[in-house]
Design a protein around this nucleic acid. Structure first.
Lengths: 208, 208
DNA sequence: CATTGACTAACGAACGATAGTTAGTTATAA
DNA sequence: TTATAACTAACTATCGTTCGTTAGTCAATG
């Protein structure tokens, strides 16, 4: 009678539903139906409904920490490297467009992002998590990136944090837009492309 | 037995609750309790629960269209004016900081913004509304602003839309951050200030 | 001026449906 | 044989909603 990985299936089905309807609007029966079991069977795997959300926050979003480009890339490591990637606006645009496509289409990341958008006002823990994933981690990554570009004489500027904000925060807004209206992705990608090239032109070291 | 403006009180109480818990998680009893009546009495004013949300979307967000700076200001009108406001980075920073403080603290606007953030994935109408208020209207306003500054020889740049995005979209992200974590407003305001001055420096017409 | 009647907005009580949850049972796999 | 994970059945609470009633408001009427 054991189906093997039911617990994981419950988490996935829950994320599917929570990321569209939200936690409160999703019923235990709905989750059970999506998994293909009776609702009472859920309680063999989770103490109660809240425990599913808690596990999602810990698990799926912990998974994020492992797989996210923003959480794991360290630009310092390229300091002594012979071959340095991403030193032109073209390479940067390609890199960032690739990252956007990835985090936009990766099922776990995109669903987790939507769920957090819905649940961000529920409690302080979820609020802080949303800030971390949608803002702090991204800002930290791009601040490192900008510093790397300055060190390598590509860009010039006094405040890397502000430069990073100007580079990545518009992109954050565009990602939210694509989450709501996926049809607009091509149009948004075009804007991102123009934006990055413009950014590199304005902060070009040879211009200062 | 008539309390005068019960219908309006119901809408306000509903917005209060929806902007924190969301629509589904808020019960009719909760709304009635906040207003100070029994839940059955709500049905003297609204056909059903959904009708409250519909009225909020139409009413409160229609109110936005009337009062929002972004929906009503037209930069064209300053073309022939003798005294032109906002021609320096200092004035722009002050203006934008004032606007942020306003839309951040105005109770209707901030609650409507949070409610839309929670409900944006419910249906396409709410998704489009969220895009309009959080993105399109703001972008249109700032694109006009940037064009106005270019016409008046303050800024120089080829693509006013991209410039507007670089100016206002980071601010959008910061406003969302303050919605979640109001304590961080001072820190955010400082970033906004730096950001705007940097923006004006980079696109300064005398630099081109 | 007092009475009436229509109208409105509140009420208590109850509805069926569904929520989350528990208990007890059965089948399967180790 | 034992532990686990599924099941059926049932629980209580609450959901959104409806019904019939009551208490005020106001205009028209006598």
């Amino acid at each position: 009678m054991d189906r093997g990985n039911t617990k994981q299936e419950i988490l996935e089905a829950s994320l599917d539903l929570f990321s569209v309807q939200g936690f409160e609007a999703t019923s235990i029966s709905q989750i059970a139906g999506a998994v293909g079991i009776r609702k009472a069977s859920l309680y063999s795997h989770f103490e109660n409904k809240q425990a599913i959300l808690d596990a999602l926050v810990k698990d799926v979003l912990g998974q994020y920490a492992e797989h996210s480009i923003f959480a794991k890339t360290d630009w310092e490591k390229y300091n002594d490297a012979e071959e340095k990637p991403v030193l032109t606006s073209d390479a940067a645009a390609q890199m960032i467009l690739g990252q956007i496509r990835y985090i936009l289409h990766d099922p776990h990341i995109s669903k987790a992002r939507k769920m957090l958008a819905i649940e961000q006002f529920q409690n302080e823990e979820l609020a802080r998590l949303q800030t971390k994933q949608n803002y702090s981690d991204v800002m930290q990554y791009f601040t490192g990136f900008v510093k790397y570009l300055i060190r390598n004489g590509v860009l010039a500027g006094e405040d890397p944090e502000i430069m990073a904000a100007q580079l990545c925060l518009p992109v954050s807004t565009w990602i939210n837009l694509c989450d709501r209206e996926p049809d607009r992705e091509p149009e948004v990608m075009e804007l991102v492309n123009k934006h990055i090239r413009q950014f590199f032109r304005m902060y070009d070291a040879r211009r200062a």
